[in-house]
Every structure is written in structure tokens, then in C-alpha cells.
Amino acid sequence: MSTLEEQIEIGAPADAAWDQLHRIADYPRFVEGVLHASARGSHRARLDVAVDGGHREFDAFFTDRGHNRVMTWETVDEPHLRGTFALRPLDEHRTQVQVRIEYEPAAVEELFGGAPHGFALASAIERTVRTDLEQLRDLVEHRTR
């Protein structure tokens, strides 16, 4: 299992970022490859994801630890992916968002195609996550203006 951690500062209160992470239907606006997303109750979501020229649906479970502003998620089926969003208020107008993703490189490469094993795959995933965080930042900051 490989782990990736990234973080970004958002120019908005932690509550605004926390609310955005819970707007499942907005995931296509900031998560690369997500074509459609919908909540299935309070702790489950269905994501329609672009996969190597086609698409595939994934179910994911979400768990909140609201007072700590930590959201964890995990896919139900293959490939097994797990992640955590942790929000840390820096002041009343700035928030640090940290994401941690755990994945099996071979399963991700098999499903999504793309770069070969090793460093190239890890680098591609890192760029994708960085871009997703930047898009999340832009969306949250735009909504709070």
C-alpha cells in the first residue's frame, strides 16, 4: 500500500471548506475524473468516474469526526482506496486542508491505465491530487466572496 499526503491553504474559514467537502454533488467540480457524484444517505456516495476511455461507478463510505474536522472515506469495491481530509483553522479567514490517500499502485494502474509502475505512477497521482486541492481551494474561496 502506498501513501500520498498533500496540503493546501485556503483563504476561507474552516466551516466553508468543511461544508464544501460535504457537497458530494460538487465533486466533479474539483476531483479530476469524477463525472457525476451523488449522496446515498448520510455516509455513502456513488461516484461515476472516467476510467481509461470509459467510466465506472464506485461506492464510497464517509465517516466524519466533525469536532476535529476530519473526514475519512473508503471505496467499497476494487480498487481499495482510502483517504482522509483534515482541516485546521489557521485563523478566522484561512484554513489548511490536508489530504492523505492510501492506494495499491498496481490496482490503480490496472484500472486507470497511464504511467508505468513506480515513480512515474506516484508522480502522476501526486500531480492529480495537487490539482484537485487547488480546484477545491478555488471553489471554496469563490463561494465565500
Rank of each mutant, 00 (worst) to 15 (best):
V70R: 11
L35K: 13
A50D: 13
E9K: 10
D26H: 09
M1K: 13
I24Y: 05
Q98P: 04
H43Y: 02
E78K: 12
P28C: 13
P116E: 05
R145F: 07
H142R: 15
A50V: 13
A45D: 10
T144F: 09
I8T: 03
S2W: 01
L4Q: 00
P13D: 09
R69A: 04
R23H: 04
D132V: 08
H55Y: 15
R145A: 12
V31L: 15
R88L: 15
Q98C: 05
I24F: 06
M1Y: 10
P89Q: 12
I24R: 00
F62H: 10
R44Y: 07
E57L: 06
F61I: 07
R23S: 07
E126S: 12
R94S: 06
Y27S: 06
D132Q: 00
T72A: 13
F58N: 00
E57P: 04
E110H: 09
Q20P: 00
V140A: 06
P13L: 03
E92K: 06
G113C: 01
E9N: 13
G11F: 10
T131K: 08
F119W: 07
L139Q: 14
H36T: 13
V34H: 11
T63Y: 12
T72I: 10
D26Q: 08
L90H: 00
I8Y: 04
R143E: 15
Y27P: 05
A45K: 07
T75S: 12
D52F: 14
E57D: 14
E134V: 08
G54R: 14
R130E: 11
A115Q: 03
P105V: 08
L121P: 09
P28W: 04
T3D: 05
V108S: 10
F30K: 03
E126I: 01
D77H: 14
E102K: 11
T72G: 06
T63W: 12
H22D: 06
E109I: 09
R23T: 07
D19I: 00
W73L: 02
D52L: 03
P105D: 00
E78A: 14
Q135S: 11
D77M: 13
E57M: 11
I24L: 08
I8H: 01
R127D: 13
V31W: 07
H93Q: 15
Q98K: 11
T131S: 02
A124Q: 02
R130H: 03
A37E: 12
I125N: 00
W73C: 01
R130C: 07
F85D: 12
I125K: 00
T95Y: 07
E102P: 10
A14C: 10
F112C: 09
D15E: 08
Y27H: 09
H80K: 15
E32G: 09
V70T: 03
G114R: 06
R69V: 02
E32V: 03
L136R: 03
M71H: 04
L47P: 10
H93V: 08
S42N: 11
S2D: 05
